[in-house]
Write a protein that binds this DNA or RNA. Structure first.
Lengths: 207, 207
DNA sequence: TAATAATTCTATAGATCTATAGAATTACGG
DNA sequence: CCGTAATTCTATAGATCTATAGAATTATTA
């Protein structure tokens, strides 16, 4: 019989559950939450549909875990950049690099978090929102530093800046996933340059 | 009995079909293609589930129509900006304004095009891709003008620029939909300013 | 108004899909 | 190697959901 509370506290269970989360991430990323079936997820990890419920009590719980996993890992990385001892411009580039690399490399969970979290119940969404806000606030903090150090204009709206950068990174993330040949480093540099300098011609002035 | 080819060529049919497309857009935008049922769409337009098939031969056809409607209207607007006789900076701002206003005002179809078109069969996606490319190329053209006129740097990668702007607008579009209180005009100005000038402090130089 | 055409409805076949129960199998501690 | 616990499987109830057929209703036209 299936245990009432099927959460054995051993390594194997934890490891398999992690696999299940990864499979769910992969399938949700490809087909969307409602377009993916529990059968798809189970097949992806090589077990039968019913067995999946040994690891999740519902499909929705699986989505919740994927989203949490995606954003948590991500916030961690952001934190390590924020607290590091680099000048502003390095931090900005590190942020963009982290974000885009994450998309290219593996992080299907982040994509799922961005695209599918709205299908979670209010309560879980609130938890995720906290994590997302933390991320944005750290980026805001980086911009504030930049303003203080004089690298950025004093008039800068740091809240706007952070949202714009996150939005742009997510947009490029989608493109990066669709076009595997795109030069990642080139894109990172151009994004950083855009954010710092914009596209306008800079007049060369004699001093 | 239901006609074999149910496409009566009269005004009423066309009008109701348009209503159906709008309802589908609204429901797909809220719940996603797979999360929305034909019952939802039918209820939204005040008819019964089965009756919807008088206007679409499948749910997928409805999605196709919504996407086409969303992007077509959009490309038209972009075209009118592109061929107009304004200086580069006005065209850029008009583009951003058009894009963001469209999100705020009504254009659920555009959101559906952006988020759900990947669930269409390859063939229909290809048609839409042409329209999307047309849109992007027109924006690229505007940037090329800007370079030629000396307003933008000669080193600018116009393809990158166009994708970055579209991506940023879509990202802000999502935010705008979620946060109805956001000041649209302020956001438009800040986006334009970001794209032109970036965030970096501009040194004041004596000449 | 009568006849025809267009539109909508009801009912349902058939194909999912989620979640659960209990049996079968596998791993593990002694 | 035996007994217990953990894991996976099979089978299925019950709830969808899409698409179709044909009846009922409404509009149109002569």
């Amino acid at each position: 019989m299936k245990p009432v509370a099927p959460s054995p506290d051993n390594d194997r269970y934890q490891h398999q559950r992690q696999q299940a989360i990864r499979s769910a991430a992969s399938v949700f990323a490809a087909k969307g939450f409602h377009g993916a079936s529990t059968k798809d997820i189970a097949e992806h990890m090589g077990i039968k549909q019913g067995s999946l419920y040994y690891y999740f009590k519902s499909k929705e719980e699986a989505l919740g875990e994927v989203c949490r996993y995606g954003i948590e890992e991500y916030v961690e990385h952001m934190t390590s950049i924020a607290v590091s001892d680099q000048p502003f411009e390095s931090k900005l580039m590190a942020t963009i690099t982290s974000h885009l690399t994450s998309y290219r490399e593996r992080n299907e969970a982040l994509k799922v978090h961005n695209d599918e979290r709205l299908y979670l119940p209010e309560e879980k969404r609130a938890t995720l929102k906290l994590l997302g806000s933390k991320y944005r606030q750290q980026l805001e903090g980086i911009f504030e530093e930049g303003v203080k150090s004089g690298a950025l204009r004093g008039s800068l709206d740091c809240h706007f800046a952070a949202q714009a950068v996150i939005g742009m990174c997510n947009a490029w993330g989608d493109i990066i996933v669709r076009e595997p040949d795109l030069d990642l480093f080139d894109t990172i540099q151009k994004c950083t340059d855009l954010i710092l300098n914009g596209f306008r011609e800079r007049r060369i002035v004699k001093r």
